[in-house]
Amino acid sequence: MEMTSGTGLHGRPWPELTPDRRPVLVVPAFPGRLMILDDGWSNHATDPQPAWSAVLDGHRLTVLRPGGQTWYDDEIATTHEWRRAVRAHATLLLITGPFTSPHDLRTAAASGRLLLLTAPIHLAHHP
């Protein structure tokens, strides 16, 4: 993956792009963020989970779990290229697991402890 934003904020999610330019949000572990396997989380990329949804409104990203519960709702450091990828692919790969920064992401990945979920996403339209 290619880093598309500064990642010095310990514990904060950051946007990435895969080599084929698909949008990814890397989400460090956070106590209040549920990762329930029955919701569609897996240790490998899967088809989009239709019960999930995501909306990018400017720099604010809202991700809803099945049943409409908020899983993530905050500003992220998006770039024009990342937003263009969201528009082009209409899906967002979420990656999470037992890591709190880019520095320990590699260890979590090497140990096979990452969880992935692909959600449909769209850009909010401003008047």
Rank of each mutant, 00 (worst) to 15 (best):
M1W: 10
E2Y: 11
E2W: 09
S5Q: 09
L9K: 06
L9G: 01
R12W: 08
P13M: 01
W14K: 01
P15H: 00
E16H: 04
E16Y: 10
D20Y: 02
P23E: 07
L25A: 09
L25M: 13
V26H: 00
V26G: 00
V26M: 13
V26N: 05
V27D: 09
P28C: 08
A29I: 09
F30A: 08
F30P: 00
P31S: 07
P31H: 07
G32T: 11
G32L: 09
G32K: 14
R33T: 13
L34K: 08
L34N: 07
L34A: 12
M35Q: 09
M35Y: 12
I36H: 06
L37H: 10
D39S: 08
D39Y: 12
D39H: 15
W41R: 10
W41H: 12
S42E: 04
H44G: 00
A45Q: 10
P48R: 05
P50L: 07
A51L: 11
W52L: 00
W52G: 08
S53T: 02
L56S: 05
L56W: 00
D57S: 12
G58R: 03
R60L: 01
T62M: 09
T62H: 00
L64Y: 11
L64P: 12
R65T: 04
R65F: 06
P66V: 13
G68N: 11
G68H: 03
Q69L: 06
Q69E: 13
Q69A: 14
Q69S: 12
T70I: 14
T70F: 05
W71V: 01
D73F: 04
D74Y: 13
E75M: 12
E75A: 04
E75D: 05
I76A: 05
A77V: 05
A77E: 05
T79V: 05
T79Q: 03
T79E: 03
T79Y: 08
W82P: 10
R84W: 09
R84V: 07
R84G: 09
A85T: 04
A85Y: 15
H89T: 15
L92S: 09
L94T: 02
F99I: 03
T100H: 12
S101L: 03
S101A: 13
S101T: 14
S101V: 14
P102V: 09
D104W: 08
D104I: 05
L105S: 00
R106V: 11
T107P: 04
T107L: 14
A108R: 03
A108C: 14
A109P: 15
A110M: 13
S111N: 13
S111H: 15
G112T: 02
G112H: 15
R113W: 14
L114H: 03
L115P: 06
L115A: 08
L116Y: 01
L116F: 15
L117Y: 00
T118N: 02
T118E: 01
A119V: 10
A119K: 07
I121E: 07
L123H: 02
A124E: 08
H125V: 05
H126Q: 12
H126C: 04
H126E: 13
P127D: 08
